[in-house]
């Protein structure tokens, strides 16, 4: 039964396994994509295929190249930094064939509220409206120029922007106080809120004007002794002035 002392079983199986392994080796040589493993365990050509993807958004720079007459005033307005394609949609085709493809513009009332409809989750100070109450039926563009979106008239109420704070204050003991009772608001703040911030009180004595023992205010106003009441702290460290629940 032996050839060179090796059992026949082993010879037969060795033969079969050699064929299988050889087939696998040949298959690997034939079927592994040529660019596989050039830079790592992947097909290097795949990167080029990803790169070959078509561009739809041309980018701000491309728009500015031609439309500087819109860009310049817009860059000085509140919509500074808002890319043209945010509202006008992807415009790479327009860059390649300016006359054949003209990007649209949202002229209806529905689009602007995507950013400007009141939503408590939006950062405080971001200009928002309650769309149902804000000049119903009118297109936004009748009053506001999206390329220079100044307000037709400055809002009289602070709550136009600071709605969340206003809502809180409304249900608090400070409901009857006007915002300007505590905050000094420069006129510029109404036009450029980020550049000219409103000022808040900085001293304990300010609260003391109403709440100190000897303050000249109504009898139902809670009183404290400024010298003994939490002296190391500022009032607003413990009491949120817009909802000053005292415990």
């Amino acid at each position: 039964m032996n050839v060179l002392g090796i059992p026949k079983q082993i010879l037969a199986l060795a033969f079969i396994f050699t064929i299988i392994i050889a087939a696998l080796v040949v298959a690997r040589m034939l079927f592994i994509p040529p660019s596989f493993g050039r830079y790592g365990h992947y097909r290097a050509d795949a990167v080029d295929e990803v790169i070959a993807q078509e561009i739809n958004y041309a980018g701000y720079e491309a728009c500015i190249e031609c439309h500087d007459e819109i860009y310049e005033p817009k860059e000085k307005s509140h919509h500074k930094g808002v890319s043209c394609e945010v509202c006008h949609g992807p415009a790479a085709k327009h860059v390649q064939a300016p006359d054949e493809f003209v990007p649209g513009a949202p002229r209806k009332r529905g689009y602007c509220p995507l950013c400007h409809d009141y939503n408590p989750s939006r950062p405080t100070g971001f200009p928002q409206i309650i769309t149902e109450l804000h000049n119903p039926g009118k297109a936004c563009m009748t009053c506001h120029d999206p390329h220079n979106p100044l307000l037709p008239h400055t809002p009289e109420e602070c709550s136009a922007c600071h709605r969340e704070i206003a809502n809180t204050k409304r249900v608090s003991h400070h409901a009857s106080l006007a915002c300007v009772r505590c905050h000094t608001v420069p006129d510029e703040h109404l036009v450029h809120p980020k550049f000219a911030l409103a000022q808040a009180p900085v001293e304990r004595e300010f609260c003391g004007e109403c709440h100190a023992k000897d303050a000249d205010t109504g009898r139902d106003v809670p009183r404290i002794d400024l010298d003994t009441h939490g002296e190391r702290y500022l009032c607003w460290d413990c009491h949120y002035p817009h909802h000053p629940e005292a415990r």
């Binding site: 039964m1 059992p7 026949k8 079983q9 037969a12 199986l13 033969f15 079969i16």
Partner: peptide, 18 residues
């Protein structure tokens, strides 16, 4: 059997061992 037709006792013992 892949051509291994040996059924001698020795061969079967080898099968069993493997």
């Amino acid at each position: 059997p892949l051509g291994v037709t040996d059924v001698s006792e020795k061969s079967i013992l080898f099968d069993n061992k493997i």
